[in-house]
Structures are given as structure tokens and as C-alpha cells.
């Protein structure tokens, strides 16, 4: 088992500083909780790392183990089976899982704006969806619904786009095999920038593609029967992300430090950390708190999800925990 080991010194500092808040102090038994992330370690989960590192969870009496994801690591099953109390998914994947009978609720939304983008080179840029016509786009065929939805929302003729199935890699664009790529704003474009390749990024979310991403999911059963733990978990998480916003460079540095074996590059992580801010924080989160969502954003999501072939109702979202968290925290 490869859990994170929290540096002891930090833990003690944290415990001492907040000792007054915790009833039983550092001796209080810590409840072990698994939190399933959706990808390999990177600053994408910077807020969680901060929460862990600064002991925000241990203050809540939780001993949190962050479980990595990966290209072949599903998020939903561990959450369904209870191995993980909470997981990070996205509205479309969650909707799909619910369709298959998983009793999930989205309890908070880290990425208000979906990170899906079209990356292109400045010489042959894609600045708006219309520009896609007559171009070739590299993407996984599994993401076809995303492109279809974008085209439908913006009245683009999808037949005029040449889809080239590619692996998730910037090389096809850089080497001229395709005109543009469907990718996340926060990874391939960042990699290109670091490699010195100038690029143009068009965020799908700016053109009507409203799908909550990096959403926190939990089962109905957990929400009902393990509510206190979930609340504590969310509280720590929210504090972590509040810190993240204040200093993304520090978050990047912490990520690289915590995962020396993941081959992370500090510069890349810093740029990615900064690029993420625009997706995660908005006037809405500013006023209501991190992870917030409203009836309007949910309605927009339901509409886009419909275009993606997922029929969902607003029942999929449950803001009650978040309300409690922010009610308490603010």
C-alpha cells in the first residue's frame, strides 16, 4: 500500500496551531478516508495536496488517502463500492454512471468552466467554432459527442471538419499532422508553451459548452449515512482550494515536492496551476464559495448534456453539503 505519509513535523505544527479547535487534540483517533482522484498526480489536484499538507483534514479528524487515477483507472467503481468515500468525476461521466444505475450525486464543482478546448497554431488559428470548418482536428473518437455538441450549439457544419483519431498528445499538431486538437486547456497547450511552441486556445466553455468538470461525487448512501465525514472531507478540500487561489506557484511547488517520482516539471506545473484559475474561480465562487453551482448553471449543464446524449434532471446535483460547508466556514 502506498499511502501518502504526511511529514510528521508539519502535522505536529498544524495540530499545535489548531489544537484549540479540535476537541480531543492530536490524540483524537483519525478516521481513514479514501478520496479517489481522476488522474495521475499533478497540480490539477493542487488544492487537495494543500489540504493534506497543511493538515486541514487531520484537523477534521480525518486521515485522508488520495488515490491516483490514470489512463486506465476508473473513478466511479471505487466510489460505488465504497472503497472511496468521494471521487472526482465530470458531469458527463457522472451522468453516464447514473444511467448505468450508480446512485451518484454531484456535491460540488471544482471546474466551473469545462476545460475542453481547441488548441491550434497561431499561423492557422481556431479562434471561434466557425474556424473549424475546413480544418482537420485530432481527437480521440470517444470525444465525438463533445465536438458534435459544440457544432450544434454554434451552428457549425460538422461534415466540414475532418476528424483524425489521435492519442492524447500535442505532437500531431506540432508536427503538422492535424490543424488543431481537442484537448484540455490545462495540459497539452501548457506543454506546448513550455516546449516553446506558441499556440492558440479556444475554450469550449466560452462558446456554450457547459459541462461541469472536476466534479465531486458521492453516493446517496454516503450522503445520507456518512454525512459528517463527507462534510469534513469537503471542508478540508475547500480550504485547500482557497489557499491555492492565493498562491498557485506555491501549489505547483508543493505538487512537485510531494511527487518527486511522477516526472513533474515545476515550470509546467506553475503554468498549469495558473491556467486552472480561470476555470475554477469566478464571481460566483467569489461570492458563494469554492465549488458552488446554481440552478442556472445546472440548467445549462442539463441542456449541454442532452446534446451529448445524456438525459439528466437537476436531481443529479445536491448542494446541501456545500451549503453546510460554506455556512459553517464563512
Amino acid at each position: 500500500m502506498t499511502h501518502f505519509t504526511l511529514p510528521r513535523r508539519r502535522f505536529l505544527q498544524g495540530a499545535a496551531a489548531f489544537g484549540g479547535l479540535a476537541l480531543a487534540g492530536p490524540l483524537r483517533a483519525q478516521a481513514a478516508v479514501n478520496f479517489q482522484l481522476s488522474w495521475l498526480p499533478s497540480v490539477q489536484f493542487g488544492g487537495s495536496y494543500i489540504a493534506l499538507d497543511k493538515g486541514y483534514w487531520s484537523e477534521e479528524g480525518l486521515e485522508v488517502a488520495l488515490q491516483s487515477g490514470g489512463p486506465n483507472a476508473p473513478v466511479e467503481p471505487p466510489v460505488v463500492s465504497g472503497t472511496a468515500l468521494m471521487g472526482i468525476s465530470a458531469a458527463d461521466y457522472t451522468a453516464a454512471a447514473v444511467e448505468q444505475g450508480a446512485p451518484f450525486k454531484i456535491i460540488a464543482v471544482a471546474m466551473q468552466k469545462n476545460p475542453f478546448s481547441i488548441a491550434s497554431l497561431p499561423a492557422n488559428p481556431v479562434n471561434e467554432p466557425k474556424d473549424l470548418e475546413g480544418k482537420s482536428i485530432g481527437m480521440a473518437t470517444s470525444n465525438m459527442p463533445v465536438l458534435q455538441a459544440l457544432c450544434e450549439i454554434n451552428g457549425v457544419d460538422i461534415d466540414k471538419i475532418e476528424v483524425v483519431p489521435t492519442q492524447y498528445d500535442a505532437a500531431p499538431l506540432v508536427s503538422g499532422q492535424v490543424d488543431c486538437l481537442l484537448c484540455w486547456k490545462t495540459d497539452l497547450p501548457v506543454a506546448m508553451t513550455v516546449a516553446g511552441v506558441e499556440n492558440t486556445v479556444m475554450l469550449l466553455a466560452d462558446f456554450g459548452y457547459a459541462v461541469h468538470s472536476q466534479t465531486y461525487i458521492a453516493t446517496e448512501d454516503a450522503i445520507k449515512n456518512d454525512r459528517a465525514t463527507l462534510l469534513s472531507l469537503l471542508k478540508g478540500e475547500v480550504r485547500g482550494w482557497q489557499d491555492y487561489e492565493k498562491d498557485t506557484d506555491a501549489a505547483a511547488a508543493l505538487t512537485v515536492e510531494m511527487f518527486p517520482d511522477s516526472g513533474l516539471d515545476l515550470e509546467t506545473q506553475k503554468i498549469q496551476a495558473a491556467a486552472q484559475v480561470g476555470l475554477m474561480y469566478s464571481d460566483l465562487t467569489e461570492s458563494k464559495g469554492f465549488g458552488w453551482f446554481t440552478e442556472e448553471t445546472v440548467a445549462a449543464n442539463i441542456e449541454t448534456l442532452g446534446l451529448l446524449g445524456r438525459t439528466v434532471s437537476e436531481e443529479l446535483w445536491d448542494r446541501s453539503l456545500l451549503e453546510e460547508v460554506h455556512g459553517n466556514a464563512l
Partner: peptide, 11 residues
């Protein structure tokens, strides 16, 4: 892990 990381970061 490194292989995936490297491919994604154009390294």
C-alpha cells in the same frame, strides 16, 4: 507513470 506524463507534456 512517467511514460504517460512524458507523452502528455510533449517531452
Amino acid at each position: 507513470v512517467l511514460a504517460i506524463q512524458a507523452m502528455r507534456s510533449l517531452d
